[in-house]
Amino acid sequence: MADQQTTVAPGTEVLPDSEVLEDELPSEVASPDVPWQVVVWNDPVNLMSYVAMVFRKVLGHPKATAHKLMMQVHEMGKAVVAHGTREKCEADCSRLHAHGLWATMEKAGR
């Protein structure tokens, strides 16, 4: 992600890893026992603060979860941000695309 790629954008709350507990993750992210998943890929243009905001507003993730997923995208190159049926994942994908994120969907467990 861009611009603030080496430092988090001004106004973006930075949480130490220890503060983002696994059990805070929404069940559909933490327990991929559903057939499809949505993956968001890193890109050099989208702002980190914007990506975290989209995760909150579009996918409904809590602030800490959204921040953790954003950092995973940035540092690992991608992150699974949602699970569900094919229809749900297509809907999530389209909302993420509408907001300019690079999202794909695939069968879970790949």
């Binding site: 890109d43 297509e90 994908c93 389209s94 695309h97 300019g100 690079w102 999202a103 794909t104 969907m105 695939e106």
Partner: peptide
């Protein structure tokens, strides 16, 4: 491609 990405890569 960037403005309208593919949802299904493969």
């Amino acid at each position: 491609r960037r403005l309208v990405p593919d949802a299904h890569r493969d």
